[in-house]
Design a binder for these strands. Structure first.
Lengths: 345, 345
DNA sequence: TTGTACGCGTTATCAG
DNA sequence: CTGATAACGCGTACAA
């Protein structure tokens, strides 16, 4: 069953014309008389005709739709990105298909397969934490599918990439803690294999080094699933609290990790910042709403979505293959609040 | 360009068979020899053949995909619903297409059109706040498109509906405030025209009446756009504070309204619950995380998504038209915390 | 057991 | 200016 009901054929029959004439009239071809065009378009409008996109895709080989792969839309950062994507995609007459990996490599592969077999014209992807093998994407890339990476990228594939300034985000957060008098700064973060983790860590490291403090691996905790389950972070925090020389501050990455850490610290009745200061990546307006005291690093998700889509459309619309790619770095924003108030001596 | 590359035709050519033989072999038809089947399926697997779903849809008249319409995925409740939907849809081999209305009637109409012309087999929809005309859905319903409503429903269309117990949610929240000693309970809620608003209001009203308190329209504030912009709620709150007999408690509906109200109350340095108590619908884990003191009504989004999809699949898979529909009511959960602590005399 | 022919809705090419 | 005809990839009567 197709619920768009009326087809070009129906119009042709009703008007005693051939399907090809109707098709051309609808597409405003120069070889059709104004009069016929008028009759056809009017009939079409009246009967609410709309072309079947399946048939069009089949015929034309493209679908005017782009695929999106993110870890989960429950993450406010990603829903903001998606809103940005939609805003420019719709403008250009493209529609979007959203899929979630839930941080699973297998699901990522499945989704990418699903999307490409739905004849998407381009792919916008933020890698899952588990992904370290890129064959499923390399193949597509080789075949000429336009791909743009955002947020979690890989340098194994040469194409446009949009990221935020993760190095600076990590640096700024750490530096701010340092400037406020904290010296033993722990780091709870996403798995070490993904790009954002490395970059933020690099910023963290740089700030510490500038302050003459050595990185201590024992107070750096990686969450294998990016904090998908609370246990990961409970463990990380417990280990941090059990360390000989307990940290006086924590720098967390990602919405999920930050808010969960905050939750657990509250639950454990740890005074922030008196006992331990806290600064973390958050992207939810709720963070502002529900805890106006949390210092944070904010990422421009909406803008990232827009930029990524612009670059993807460039690739899709390019007549010839593109060989020059750029990596666009968007600024992050440091918001300082009570959770990192200057340390009292 | 199609990036799934290899087609049934390629296989046929490579194996010196006809396309139909290959097609049948792939579909495990009884009229094909085991030997041929083996050769074909092996070749297909080797070359990563997968049928073009566009062509399949075109041919078979169904697409094995279902459309979703929600107001916005930034709302955690809806992203939970979507996760529920995906969990059962994927299980059944269906894929989902997500669209957002951003509470606009026009966009809702556009999205529904978009979805149906992408030949979805069924529609899962939660109405936008603006929607009061249902023609776009009635037409589809008449044509036989399986539709299931969830959360924000209409009784103008007879089909399956999944809601939470909004009456009880409103009743429980209000009753709890009453039991805690609050008597003048304001209500900030979504637009009056949508189902959830009415039902929750009915519960609110019932609780007040049972306590012998008359409903005072001057402390009931409707947000035309469901709190899409903060100004709506700023106004509502300002008006509430300017009323002669100031309320001693507020009951808010929806994640957005609740968290924004909380934010504004914090900003205005209104002590909760000493000056004004607060209870509201929230569905974000972040609410727990960032403000462990907020009393709230929690809605089972994931379960709602699952149930809705189960019922939709029933409709899609039914051989004959279905004429008996049910409205399933899921329980909500009252979580009581400090923001509604007993009132001191 | 395998192959031929046709149709799903559309568009492009080529005749008329 | 209009109309056959073929083709996109697939599935299925029907024929061989």
């Amino acid at each position: 069953m197709n619920f768009s009901s009326i087809t070009i054929k129906d119009i042709a029959a009703a008007l005693n014309l051939s399907v090809s004439t109707v098709s051309k009239a609808l597409r405003d071809s120069y070889e059709i008389s104004e009069n016929t065009k008028k009759i056809v378009t009017e009939y079409a409008k009246e009967h609410n005709y709309r072309p079947n996109p399946m048939a069009q895709s089949l015929k034309q080989g493209h679908s005017k739709s782009i695929g999106i792969v993110v870890s989960t839309i429950e993450n406010q950062f990603f829903s903001q990105v998606i809103n940005g994507i939609e805003s420019v995609a719709y403008e250009a007459g493209f529609n979007v298909i959203i899929t979630q990996t839930h941080e699973s490599f297998d699901i990522e592969v499945k989704n990418v397969g699903h999307l490409t077999h739905h004849s998407i014209d381009g792919l916008l992807i933020s890698l899952s934490t588990e992904t370290s093998d890129f064959e499923h994407l390399k193949t597509l890339h080789r075949q000429g599918l336009p791909i743009v990476f955002f947020d979690r990228i890989t340098d194994e594939i040469d194409t446009h990439k949009i990221i935020t300034d993760n190095f600076k985000g990590g640096y700024d957060a750490t530096r701010h803690l340092l400037d406020s008098g904290y010296k033993r700064i722990a780091h709870i973060t996403s798995p070490p294999n993904i790009s954002i983790t490395k970059e933020r860590f690099a910023g963290y490291k740089k700030a510490l080094e500038e302050a003459g403090i050595a990185v201590d691996e024992s107070i750096i905790k990686y969450c294998p699933h990016g904090g998908r389950d609370i246990g990961e972070i409970e463990n990380a925090l417990a280990e941090l609290l059990a360390v000989d020389n307990k940290p006086d501050a924590i720098f967390t990455t990602s919405d999920r990790i930050t808010t969960t850490t905050l939750f657990l610290m509250n639950k454990l009745k740890i005074k922030i910042p008196q006992e331990i200061a806290l600064i973390g990546y958050t992207n939810t307006t709720l963070a502002d709403v529900l805890n106006p005291s949390l210092s944070s690093v904010y990422q421009p998700g909406f803008e990232m979505g827009q930029k990524a889509t612009q670059k993807l459309l460039e690739l899709i619309l390019a007549k010839r293959p593109v060989y020059e790619f750029e990596t666009i770095v968007l600024p992050t924003q440091l918001v300082t609040r009570d959770s990192t108030a200057p340390k009292k001596a």
